[in-house]
């Protein structure tokens, strides 16, 4: 029942060691702070949004979504890739009497913790900034689902990449465009109609829609279903890749 726990515990022990190194926390905060200063406090002052919302209030939840995506995804993808191909520590799980489902759960939960931790750091920084942003239940739900979804995607990348360099390639092709074009920095209304189908395929787009909502309307409901669909899809694919592991 709790077969996933040793996998989760191992990741947490390693995470704890990394946290003790001062540089880790600062490096995790660096990118969001740069975005906050550049886009929020710098360029953002010249931006006016409909409904009288100030840009920092708009940007902030998007940055949390982006950061949680980056951290959940890249930690899982990178550690899984390294442990499978270089350190061969992943093989310990395969040779242990536990099922692939437990391995998947352990890896995803560990990825979620890292994504949530990075999000908390940004929320902490945001606490000192002048914005009208407030946390509600939909925000928490969107954040949790986003961490889960991208941790699952991280498992897929970690399992299919043939070298550590491939992880960066996948990140450049999928994660980086998503970070910029999924409504993190600007409203989806401003995107030309031709590109909209591509934008709405991206999972982060739906997190960004959901995470900014104060109540569940039709748009939020559709995005919630889209996120749940991606969560299911990525989880099943990750699970199958672990189950079919063959050297």
């Amino acid at each position: 029942m709790l077969d996933w726990y040793p996998i989760f515990l191992k990741e947490m022990l390693q995470f704890k060691r990394k946290l003790l190194r001062l540089g880790y926390i600062f490096s995790a905060m660096m990118a969001p702070i740069i975005y906050l200063i550049t886009f929020g406090l710098g360029l953002g002052r010249t931006v006016t949004l409909s409904g009288g919302v100030d840009y920092l209030t708009y940007l902030f939840p998007g940055l949390v979504a982006m950061s949680s995506m980056n951290n959940s995804y890249s930690w899982v993808a990178s550690t899984l890739n390294l442990s499978r191909l270089y350190f061969k520590t992943f093989q310990i799980y395969i040779q242990a009497p536990i099922n692939p489902f437990s391995i998947m759960i352990g890896e995803v939960l560990a990825g979620m913790v890292k994504g949530l931790f990075a999000s908390l750091l940004i929320l902490f920084v945001g606490f000192f900034l002048p914005s009208g942003f407030k946390i509600n239940e939909i925000f928490v739900l969107a954040l949790l689902l986003n961490c889960f979804m991208f941790a699952c995607l991280g498992v897929i990348t970690g399992m299919i990449t043939k070298s550590h360099e491939d992880t960066a390639t996948y990140s450049n092709f999928f994660i980086l465009p998503m970070a910029f074009f999924s409504g993190t920095f600007f409203s989806l209304d401003r995107i030309p109609h031709v590109f909209k189908p591509f934008i709405y395929i991206m999972p982060l787009t739906h997190t960004n829609i959901l995470i900014r909502k104060n109540f569940i309307d039709t748009e939020a409901l559709l995005s919630l279903f889209a996120v749940l669909f991606y969560c299911f899809l990525f989880f099943v694919l990750g699970y199958l890749l672990i189950r079919k592991y063959n050297e």
Partner: peptide, 28 residues
């Protein structure tokens, strides 16, 4: 079964005890 692989696949950043603890939990 117990396996000692060709490559050292211990968790290098964990202690000896932590390595044994994780492995023991995996093998119940």
């Amino acid at each position: 079964i117990g396996v000692v692989p060709q490559e050292n696949n211990l968790e290098r950043e964990l202690t000896v005890y932590e390595n044994l603890l994780i492995y023991g939990m995996l093998h119940k």
